[in-house]
Amino acid sequence: MATLYIVATPIGNLNDFSQRAIDTLKNVDHIGCEDTRTSSVLLQHFQIDKPTFSFHQHNEHQKVDYLMDLLNQNQTVALISDAGMPGISDPGFLAVRSAYQNGHDVCPIPGPSAVTAAIAASGLPSDRFLFEGFLPQKKGRQTKIKEIADSDITTIIYESPYRVVKLLNTLAEFCEGTRWVCVARELTKKFEEIDRGQLSDIVERWNSKDSIKGEFVVIIAGKTYED
């Protein structure tokens, strides 16, 4: 029986990488990376020299067997994503499930997460929330946004810089302008921005921006919430 480690990596600021995570990566036999090129920067910075292999959404099904072969040979494996916790809108679920099915241990090494960082900084209700990850780009997208508009609990969405304004404008079609929203951009990075306010004001501000870059987390309060 071997162990699969699920290791959270920084979402921007390298100082957020825990000593436990560093020690774990230095002691495993192999590291599965969402993108070996991206991960190499992190690994070199912390002087971690271990064999790596790619494990991402496009090869996850094929690489699960390879990962299981390593564990079955009593080799320890760590799984990391480009940023945050593997398995949270990133590859990892299939590997964890297969590890359990094959009798291996799974050990999470917690750390940075855009979900928890954004909800904590939003000032919106966090006793209950729904994490939707990335919404469908086409089919079912508008239906999902309408469901969010009708929800009584806080909803968290990941969005790209190319679609965030369109998302806000679509929300405005289904929500009252007084709905509370928080747009978090580039969390933990140099140009971190946390914009909290009523939807009508948020939409106006983001529609007026000339250039929009970065990784986004959008948080929508439940429809019954009053600030």
Results as ranks from 00 to 15, higher is better:
Ala120Asn: 09
Val165Asp: 01
Asn207Cys: 09
Ser39Ile: 05
Lys190His: 15
Val64Trp: 00
Thr52Asp: 06
Tyr5Ile: 00
Ala149Val: 06
Ile194Ala: 09
Thr143Phe: 04
Phe174Asn: 10
Gly103Met: 10
Ser89Thr: 05
Ser89Phe: 02
Gly123His: 03
Asn59Val: 02
Leu135Thr: 07
Glu132Pro: 00
Gly87Asn: 03
Asn207Ser: 13
Val7Pro: 00
Glu60Asp: 09
Thr52Gly: 04
Lys139Ser: 12
Arg20Val: 01
Ile80Met: 09
Pro51Thr: 06
Ser211Pro: 00
Arg205Phe: 11
Gly133Tyr: 04
Lys144Ile: 01
Val77Ala: 10
Gln47Ile: 10
Glu186Ile: 02
Leu167Asn: 02
Ala95Asp: 04
Arg163Cys: 02
Ala21Met: 07
Gly177Trp: 06
Arg128Asp: 14
His104Ile: 00
Tyr5Asp: 07
Ala2Cys: 12
Pro91Glu: 06
Leu171Pro: 05
Val41Tyr: 15
Ile153Tyr: 14
Thr76His: 12
His61Cys: 10
Glu192Asn: 12
Thr116Asn: 09
Gly12Leu: 02
Asp90Val: 03
Leu167Phe: 07
Pro91His: 01
Arg128Ser: 13
Tyr162Ala: 11
Ser89Cys: 10
Gln73Asn: 15
Pro86Phe: 00
Glu173Thr: 11
Gly177Leu: 05
Leu168Met: 03
Phe216Pro: 00
Ala121Gly: 10
Glu204Asp: 14
Lys213Val: 04
Tyr66Thr: 15
Ser40Cys: 11
Asp127Asn: 12
Ala184Cys: 14
Pro108Phe: 01
Lys63Phe: 08
Thr155Phe: 01
Gly197Lys: 07
Ile80Leu: 07
Gln19Glu: 13
Val28Gly: 05
Asn13Ser: 13
Thr24Met: 11
Pro108Ile: 05
Met1Ala: 12
Asp195Met: 12
